[in-house]
């Protein structure tokens, strides 16, 4: 489950990561707060266009859209029935309202549109590069460091977890609903923490020995190219358009 993300070579992949992060950030906020379907339609077109410049296999994207849609499907079981409004038809004696269906549809579109954009970012930019870009963008240094350490230790702890759970299996441990199972898991979590802590201290000491002074140096230098500027300009114009349609009455559509 914790394989490193595949990075697909594409137009999007070559863009400056800072531009991608800023664009996605603004785009997500605009889409999340939007209340109009025509704004969402434009947002959907933008995310689709960006997605296609990322050269990501459709299958991969669909796989990654599953987690979002589990909550969305869960909400579909409620919202059409519980939102007050005009009844369109009744299902099992429960009235289904038009407003409820519209709200559920809106949530579905928003979730998927924002996620599509996020998928385009994560599959075109290595996570480490995202962290370096955050550092360049003056995100507090402690957060960036924490991000790097966490990213690194996720893999360490996950491997350790696999090792421990294998050794539990060898000793014929079968998880059941009983106190013994929970205590075993608790000790396993405790052991995971202790083992990783010792390792972290060793690594930290080694880093200090090699002169780590709390500064991060990136091997890849970011530089804004002409293409980056053009993309940024196009994105800002599109976002402005989204904002205008959402908050003013100027009839653009």
């Amino acid at each position: 489950m914790l394989e490193t993300l595949p990075i697909y070579d594409s137009f999007l992949q070559r863009l400056d990561p800072r531009i991608k992060i800023i664009s996605i950030f603004i785009f997500s906020i605009l889409t999340a707060v939007s209340q109009k379907f025509n704004v969402l339609l434009l947002a959907f077109s933008i995310s689709l266009a960006v997605f296609f410049t990322a050269n990501i296999p459709i299958k991969e994207a669909i796989k990654r859209l599953i987690p979002v849609n589990t909550l969305v499907i869960f909400l579909w079981f409620f919202l059409p029935f519980t939102f007050k409004g005009n009844t369109v038809f009744t299902l099992f004696d429960l009235p289904v309202t038009l407003e409820g269906i519209l709200l559920a549809t809106m949530i579905t579109v928003k979730s998927n549109v924002i996620m599509l954009m996020l998928i385009a970012l994560t599959l075109s930019t290595p996570i480490v590069t995202i962290a370096h870009a955050m550092h360049e963008m003056k995100v507090p240094k402690k957060i960036v460091h924490l991000f790097f350490f966490t990213l690194r230790y996720i893999h360490v702890i996950h491997n350790e977890y696999i090792r421990l759970s294998n050794s539990m299996k060898i000793r014929s441990f079968k998880p059941k609903t009983n106190f013994h199972t929970y205590r075993t898991y608790a000790y396993m979590v405790g052991m995971l923490l202790i083992k990783s802590l010792e390792r972290a201290q060793r690594v930290h000491n080694a880093m200090r020995c090699r002169g780590f002074n709390g500064n991060l140096y990136s091997l890849s230098n970011f530089s804004i190219q002409k293409t980056d500027k053009i993309v940024m300009a196009i994105m800002m114009i599109l976002f402005l358009l989204l904002g205008i349609i959402e908050w003013t009455t100027i009839p653009l559509f």
């Binding site: 402690k142 924490l146 966490t150 996720i154 059941k176 972290a200």
Partner: peptide
């Protein structure tokens, strides 16, 4: 962050990684 010392970052990094991995552990 204010309470967090630079030297504590490895420890906190581990705990937040453990928090991440724990969400992958399923108990019956």
């Amino acid at each position: 962050l204010k309470k967090l010392d630079q030297d504590e970052i490895p420890l906190i990094g581990i705990l937040s990684a453990a928090f991440f991995v724990a969400s992958l552990i399923h108990v019956p």
